[in-house]
Structure formats: structure tokens, C-alpha cells
Write a protein that binds this DNA or RNA. Sequence first.
DNA 1: GGGACATAAGGTGACA
DNA 2: TGTCACCTAGACTTCT
DNA 3: AGAAGTCTCCCTTCCA
DNA 4: TGGAAGGGTATGTCCC
Lengths: 210, 210
Amino acid sequence: MPLRVVGVDPGLTRCGLSAVDVERNRSAQLVAVKVVGTASSEPLDQRILAIADAIDEWLDTHRPDAVAIERVFTYTNVSTVMGTAQATGVVIAAAARRNIPVALHTPTEVKAAVTGDGRADKATITAMVTRILKLDAPPKPADAADAIAIALAHAWRGAAPGSLAAASSGAQSGMTAAQRAWAQAQAKAGSTGKRAEEARLRALVKRSAR
Amino acid sequence: MPLRVVGVDPGLTRCGLSAVDVERNRSAQLVAVKVVGTASSEPLDQRILAIADAIDEWLDTHRPDAVAIERVFTYTNVSTVMGTAQATGVVIAAAARRNIPVALHTPTEVKAAVTGDGRADKATITAMVTRILKLDAPPKPADAADAIAIALAHAWRGAAPGSLAAASSGAQSGMTAAQRAWAQAQAKAGSTGKRAEEARLRALVKRSAR
DNA sequence: GGGACATAAGGTGACA
DNA sequence: TGTCACCTAGACTTCT
DNA sequence: AGAAGTCTCCCTTCCA
DNA sequence: TGGAAGGGTATGTCCC
């Protein structure tokens, strides 16, 4: 019984969506991936609407156990942040409406999770994602790989940082019992496996480099 | 036939919602105002969900012709921006789903519109709002006044800056024909009236000061 | 194992 | 249409 | 009429 | 529970 995670790489012009099934033994399989694009010529509300519709459909189609979103940082450019944050808000709302736990992850966190190194370039990430999921070819739009990486990172690290965690209104939100069980099982294996996995990842990265 | 505008002062902890009817002759009447609060103890997704639900209900209840949102600025604190931006995104999406035009307005813009001075303190704004709408008492939570001011500012200045404006997908989005008509009529009167109005506002502000 | 330091991205517009 | 390089907030007010 | 300068806010925690 | 004041990024990596 795999954990299905939807990963989101938010953005106004391009918004990456992924769905991944992750087994308790850390093996993962790609379910679907997509990139939603909106033109800057469209009015803002239409752009956001497009994203909202896309995420709604995505969640209804794939019915994930969790949603992981890439947390944005204060780039040098502020106004762009707003756009991405707005998109993020829409995604969070969409998930919350369906009572799906949401988690945010920083870019470094994601990179570290999938490559074993907190600072890895986009190419490395793409390569690792491709390898981990045993894909025939790298995910086509670059943002797709990112979306996938986010989902993987979430499944592998747990929902720890910065967003949702636990009980809010009694029985509903937070983690499903099943998910909690999964997380615990995964964490138990993780105490030893995590380090090993990271080493393995680093090795793969090196090998990919040549 | 007044133009009904919903004004939103976004925020995670407190989100102000207003609904105002504005006549073509610039007179305005308060329909409703409300502040949605969420506790920092709740998980982020629940907070956003609460806001999403609130705005959904608000729009369905008041069926405005337009939604005006206060645009956020790069405070010194970045992380708070994210929260407000996320809330903003939710609001935009809610409006867009209903095909209601959305506009963002900067704080200065709003202040200038209702007080005649781009830099007026919160008290002045509250006072002006109270006066303009002929309220018996100042709007109770301070954010409420802000939400109202935003709505007023939008109605008085038109949807000019920064967000939506016009044709995107054929017949639907942008302005309703009726709205466009209203805007034009209002603008025609405005060419002369606007200056006068601002002067009147400034006078009022002065008088309030003593 | 703990503490200090360096690091991190995306939108728009032109061009191929 | 896909890729590449550049920039990175915005509006009011006031003074020239 | 045009150009430079300046100012902008929310979230959390504590206290009454 | 309402109001007032302060503060302001997060994470991984490397080196102690």
C-alpha cells in the first residue's frame, strides 16, 4: 500500500504538478506529471484561475494522501514572489478543502532529499529523478522534474517542517491514521536507512557526473 | 443602480471583508463588513481554508460586481508576505471562479483615494470611512475600515492598476458591459469631480484632526 | 554534537 | 514555439 | 509636465 | 479576550 504524494512546484508562468506512489521501502513510481502554463498576457485572475482549476482536477484525479509544495524564498525580486505565493495559496486551499495534509518544503531540503546534497543544480535533480523512478527519459519540462522531486522529498522525509503537522479540529485534519502508520514504519526503517540512502544517492550523483 | 464592490484586506491572522454599494454620483453605502480571524496555533492549511470558506460565502452572499484587494508590499519581514499573498491568491481564485473582476490596489493608492492624501494614518482612514458611509460608529475591528476603504478606492478610481483590465477569453472575463458603462459614466463625471472630491476629502480630514 | 557561515529563482521580453 | 539573457516594487508628493 | 525622494506592515507574544 | 509592543528567512554544509 503505497503513499501517494502530489508534488507542486508553484509559479505563475509555469506550475509543475506531479503524482508519485512511494512504497514503504522507499521505492517510488511515477503516476503522472504535468506542467500548467499561463501567459503573462492574460489577466492575473485568469492565470490564477487556470492554476486553481488545474490543481482541483489534479487532486480529484489522483486523490493523493498528501500534497507537498515547494516553499518559496525571498528572491531578489519581490513581485514575482507574490505570484508564486498566490499560486501556493490556491494549492493549499484546494488541498485543505479535500482534507488532504499539506506540507511545504524549502528548495534546499528537496535537493538534499533527492540528490544527497543540499546544493545541486537543476540538471542533477532531473537526472536523479529520472533514475529513481526508472524513467525512460528525463521529465520533459524542467519544472516537472522539480515537482516530482518535491513529492519524493516529502515522502522520504516526512511532513516535518513549517506547515501542517497535527491535530487542529479534532478528528479531521493533520495525518490520516494510515498515513501516520506509514510515516512511523518509514521512519523506523529510516533511522538506519536514511543515511545509507543518502550515501547511495551521492554515489549515483557522482556516477551521473561523468 | 449602484456598483457593488467587495473589498478585502488580506492577512492570515485577520482578514477584513467588506461589501459596499457605490452610486454613480460617488455616494456610498455600507452593505456589510466582517473580519475573519485565524489563530497562529492552527496549521497553515486550516487557516487558509478558513479564509477560503469565508470569502466563498461572502461572495455568494453579496454577489458583488467587483472585488478589490489590497496589494501587499515587501515588508521588512518576508515570511509574513507569503502568508498574505497566499490569502490573496485564494481570494483572487474565488472571485475568478465566479467571473467577478478582481483588482489589486496599493495601500497608498487606497489612502489617497479615501483621504485625499497618500500618506494618512490608520485613524484618519477609519474616520473618513465612517464619515463617508455616514456610520454611527467607526467600524469595529480596525481591519474592517481598511477593507471598506479598499472597496471605496476601487469604485472611485476604476480598476486601472496592476491586475485585471480587459478582454482575455472572449465574452466572459474583464468587465461586464454594465460595469463598463458605470465606469465610463463615473469617469466622465470624474474628470472634473475627482479633483473637487479630493479637496473636499482633505478638508474633512483637517476638520477631523482637531 | 553544536554553532557559525554561505547559499538559495522566476518573470518578462527578445530572438532564433 | 522554445531558449536565452536581464532585471529584480510601486504609488503618491513635491520640487524643478 | 517631468524627475527624484520617500514611505509602505503584519505576525507573534505578552500583558491587562 | 482585547489591546500594545517588538521583530523581522530557512536550511544545508562545514568546521570546530
